[in-house]
Design a binder for these strands. Structure first.
Lengths: 348, 348
DNA sequence: GCCAGGATTGTGACCGGTCACATGGGGCTC
DNA sequence: GAGCCCCATGTGACCGGTCACAATCCTGGC
């Protein structure tokens, strides 16, 4: 019942101690639920705490104990639906565990930001606590690589095919499987093959999504066209779409994310190729607006929030032996069939 | 040149001090650029710092000095484009000022989360440093209200019409003006009036966007229909759109954000009312994908990133007298006319 | 050659907690 | 009733910095 408020200098455990007529250590025991405190004493201390409006100073706690109960999330562009959802999932779980969440944005201005990335990692390391790196894109992957070995870190990665020597814990959604399903869906509609507009790959090698797409094509004995390199936003999809629209053989396109798909559909529209009449398009991620597009978008839903939750749980386990290490379940991607995919046009 | 790496216990200024043969205070002076240190000594200390790979412990700094160089951003749903952009703007500026950014998500589950909101504010307060509350929605507004008076805080608000007695600093984009412009645009195309699908209002009274819309109608002597209450997502727009589609008198609709507009357009499409042929629709915010919709969306662009930057600048000024208080410029909203708005159909 | 006084540098206490260890009382056993 | 052990509590040092003040060095002026 701290009615007075306005305590300029914060009240410390020593203030509480004198108020309760005990030593500061006893107060420390009370706030840490140490068993060996006489109930009557405990009550007295708790009363004093309530009276003075004491709140434990987390900075001092961090300094003295070493553990800071903080996570820093390193990510590029938080405005992308997937990234934002992961962040949301992390925050939610972290909050439940009384952890604070920090954010560091990786400017993915392509080149020369190697130093900037290193600086961000350093900053995150300095602020103590654990680290979660969203490594879906080159900037994230480089950041993950730049994390000093002794720092507790969890990567949210595109594929578990970790680089050699990388034994860091990670979580991932099964992008390969998702792409595989989406591609099979399009093939099952009767398309001869499926083209692919890729998001910037997180690795030098081919991405998980690309792999899943290729696998589906191969199993079906379909021709394997070269993937088109897109960007993250709809603009990249638009460019790629204009290009694909030229080729009348193209009847099905899988896109690395929903934004790309949007751009592709727009380009096809501009080129006079109706979707799904002439060309079918499928996206990736199931962003909230995808269901309301015209045509509504066939896509693969991934549980980003759950991914964030798993990432934190894993980190939490690494940080505190007390926390049980929840196995990081690879959530199964779910194909959502909507209007943008349909059978190919009858052969002319 | 710390080649050894793997310094388990971090090196402190005292370690550096002994290495350089000076006292810890001298080291402190060097890292704080205190003028009165002999150049030769400074060099020796810097060499030792480099040698040992010393990095100043931000936790200890915060504890000892009182200032924590940290900001916590309180916001609901970070997956919304506007919110994520504001966050991005804050992070960017904060990083430049060597501040760390924390995030607290306000679950906007309507009711009874009063306690949850208070808890979030408490958490943010505990983590030290300043606070930025994105108060575009009820949850945010309540959070802003729950911030203890003595805490440095900046609100990102919808309208500067502050509640009585609220003298906290804030930043805002001129939503009223933006809505006014958008409405005038639609009217100028020849529509008799403009209907409005609102986002959940941040205040009990009418929102800034609603006010701007009404003002434009009034000035034009147009009938003033009741605003429809939507939600944040496209689903709400869809519901509202279905309702509006019934009324054939409706030829122009302004929506509280682009997602709502998307849902409205979808609903109109389902109801067989072409956009912009029969009904014109305008959105709000200019989300990245709005330009690529079919039809592309007429909307009002707001500089959310700039808003975030201003918010941080303002807070920074409040936190450090050294930082000059950059005036928080109200960025001018920009009308972006695209395909979704056009003249009303010729009278039958 | 001596002293004032600014330039440098060092010392002790403190921020608000935790940890390791010491100490004072009961209650039990024998 | 002595010896033990455990329960409850207190004391001192420390985490890694900063702040306020004291102490020393060096230099110029007389």
């Amino acid at each position: 019942m701290n009615v007075t408020g306005h305590t300029r200098r914060s009240v410390s455990i020593r203030d509480v101690a004198t108020a309760a007529g005990v030593s500061y250590q006893t107060v420390s025991r009370v706030i840490n639920n140490h068993p060996s405190v006489k109930p009557s004493t405990r009550d007295r201390v708790l009363a004093a705490i309530d009276e003075l409006g004491f709140r434990r100073n987390s900075t001092a706690l961090a300094l003295a104990s070493g553990r800071s109960r903080a996570v820093t999330v390193l990510t590029s562009n938080t405005t992308h639906y997937g990234y934002a959802s992961i962040l949301q999932g992390i925050e939610e779980t972290a909050r439940a565990a009384a952890y604070s969440v920090g954010v560091g944005v990786l400017e993915s201005t392509d080149e020369a930001d190697e130093a900037a990335i290193a600086a961000q990692v350093q900053r995150a390391a300095d602020s103590g606590g654990g680290l979660i790196v969203i490594a879906y894109d080159p900037a994230g992957v480089r950041a993950l690589g730049a994390v000093p070995a002794e720092l507790p870190v969890v990567g949210v990665v595109e594929t578990p095919a970790s680089p050699p020597g990388d034994d860091r814990p990670w979580v991932w959604a099964d992008d390969r499987e998702a792409a595989y399903e989406a591609t099979r869906h399009l093939l099952s509609l009767g398309h001869e093959t499926v083209h692919y507009v890729a998001i910037p790959s997180s690795t030098r090698r081919t991405s998980a999504r690309t792999t899943g797409w290729q696998q589906a094509l191969r199993e079906a004995g379909a021709p394997e066209p070269l993937p088109l390199q897109g960007s993250w936003g709809p603009a990249g999809g638009h460019t790629a779409g204009l290009q694909l629209a030229q080729d009348t053989d193209v009847t099905a396109i899988l896109c690395g994310n929903d934004d790309l798909a949007l751009g592709v559909i727009r380009a096809l529209h501009e080129a006079g190729r109706p979707v799904p009449g002439e060309v079918s398009v499928a996206g990736f991620d199931d962003a909230p607006h995808s269901a309301y597009l015209t045509p509504s978008l066939t896509t693969v839903r991934l549980d980003f929030t759950g991914l964030g939750r798993s990432a934190f749980a894993l980190l939490h386990g690494a940080l505190e032996e007390s926390a049980q290490i929840a196995p990081h379940p690879v959530s199964v991607p779910e194909l959502v069939v909507r209007e943008s995919s349909g059978p190919p046009p009858a052969r002319g």
